[in-house]
Design a binder for these strands. Structure first.
Lengths: 212, 212
DNA sequence: CCGCAGCTTTGCCATAGATCAAATAACGAC
DNA sequence: GTCGTTATTTGATCTATGGCAAAGCTGCGG
């Protein structure tokens, strides 16, 4: 139906490209108002990619120069401590943006590794596209603000939970934040996210069904 | 020296007002470019206040409709759990913005209490001023983005530390984030911020100087 | 300067969670 | 399907931290 409109050839090309990143387009459309030209120009600077399961997308020690938008799949963010233990810090799901945003903003080396847990279709948004957006999209900064605010709220919630909930309570409510995570991530990663060992989580679960 | 410029009477009034909130003005000036008119209009919508030590600035259960900017003093943010225990979630220092920003954005009831630990001079920035800023400051959204990004980085850092550092290590480095906090907040609040009891912190400190 | 209220320290014991090790169980590559 | 790898469960300790209680400290209001 998009093609029903009287566009010239160059616009057609843009649309073809945009269709590949339909979900990102919608996500942006929900945050801000753009003209079709703006949207096309922005999306043209992004690149859709598909990665297989357990693929490494970004490694600690490198400066992140792109933000990823997940169309289908799941990515885990993980941090390795000085003893070599990996801590799963975050899971990123469909229609979410992900990267070490802190390092991205500061243009410093990331401490995080990003890795797919399933075959994942995503859109790479390079720093240049983001900078272009801030300069040329009428509401570019507003979009950046929305995204930063969204993740601020998420983090605030995490921090709150850390103070007032036990690991067990956090486990029981994890699907509020990561729906269906139990079928998409192995237990030891979930345990790690919760800040406990997989051994301990196993015991917590056991206690739980013993009581019921 | 500001007054040396050839301003008319109405501008003088704005400047007089602005002088009361000189620090906020500078903070904004460091984030974005504004015309003097914009800046004056914005600051005119803000109100400087002074509160004495241990004053309650905002209570859990109310919808926050203002952001505070601290010119001089210190505020602690605290969260009361279902057993009535108070957890100190955050300290806000000079030249920082503070409020339950998550609740502010969502326009929901806050879970946090805000209270001064010293006599505190601050500027109240009402929601209406912020909305005005997003509509009328050329770089309003950019400022909002900067602020959200700044606190995102702060939170990211906290979360990281929670995974890879022990409470003791976090204690030893707390002045990185809150310089001079040892002279400004009682130990039990610091312990609470770190997620341990004041009793335990006392023992950690003891161990520490026993080893040296 | 006194006295009380709120901190901080200390001691003793309880508990949550970690670590190590071994036994199963589930999963993926061929 | 089989085999090797990787997860999960279970058991036996060990450690960090919490809870309670009492004993010093400290600082502020009269």
């Amino acid at each position: 139906m998009l093609l029903a409109q009287p566009f010239g050839p160059s616009v057609i090309i843009q649309i073809t490209k945009a269709c590949k990143v339909e979900q990102l387009k919608q996500a942006i459309g929900q945050m801000i108002n753009t003209t079709p030209a703006e949207m096309g120009e922005f999306l043209r600077r992004c690149e859709p990619q598909t990665h297989k399961k357990r693929a490494n997308l970004s490694s600690a020690g490198t400066v992140p120069n792109e933000v990823l938008f997940i169309e289908q799949g799941i990515i885990r963010v993980c941090l390795t401590d000085s003893s070599g233990v990996e801590h799963t810090i975050h899971f990123a799901l469909e229609n979410q943006f992900i990267c070490d945003y802190s390092a991205f903003l500061r243009q410093e080396k990331s401490l995080y590794d990003l890795e797919t847990l399933e075959e994942t279709r995503l859109v790479v948004i390079p720093r240049s596209a983001i900078e272009w957006g801030y300069e040329h999209l009428a509401e570019g900064d507003r979009m950046g603000r929305s995204i930063a605010e969204f993740y601020f709220i998420y983090q605030d919630n995490r921090i709150k939970n850390q103070y007032i909930r036990t690991p067990k309570e956090r486990y029981d409510n994890i699907t509020d934040v990561f729906p269906n995570i139990h079928n998409r991530a192995p237990q030891h990663m979930i345990a790690s996210y919760l800040g406990i060992t997989s051994v301990h989580l196993s015991r917590l679960k056991k206690e739980s069904y013993r009581k019921t």
